[in-house]
Simulated scan of single mutants.
Amino acid sequence: MGFFAYLILGLLAGAIAKLILPGKQAGGLLGTLIIGVIGALLGGWLGSALFGVGVDSFFEISTWLCAIGGSIIVLIVWGLITGRSRRAAR
Rank of each mutant, 00 (worst) to 15 (best):
G52W: 03
F51K: 02
V37P: 00
F3D: 02
L7G: 00
A17C: 06
G43F: 03
I16V: 14
R87I: 10
K18L: 12
A49T: 09
V53T: 13
G43N: 04
G31A: 07
Y6V: 12
W64I: 00
S48F: 05
R90P: 07
D56Y: 00
L29A: 15
R87M: 11
L42I: 15
A17K: 12
Q25H: 13
G27F: 06
Y6G: 03
I68G: 01
W78S: 03
A88H: 13
T82Q: 08
I73H: 02
E60N: 10
R87Y: 07
F59G: 02
T82N: 14
L19Y: 13
A17N: 15
G44T: 03
S71M: 13
F4Q: 06
A13V: 07
S71P: 15
A49M: 05
A13M: 12
V77W: 06
R86V: 05
S62C: 01
I72D: 14
S85Q: 11
T63W: 00
A67Q: 01
T63H: 00
L12A: 13
I35C: 10
A5T: 09
G14S: 11
T82L: 08
S48Q: 12
L46K: 04
L29M: 12
I8P: 01
T32M: 14
G44W: 04
G36Y: 07
Y6E: 10
L21I: 07
F3Y: 12
I61D: 06
L19P: 10
L50G: 02
F59N: 07
G47H: 07
I61T: 13
A88K: 14
A49H: 05
L41D: 01
A15F: 15
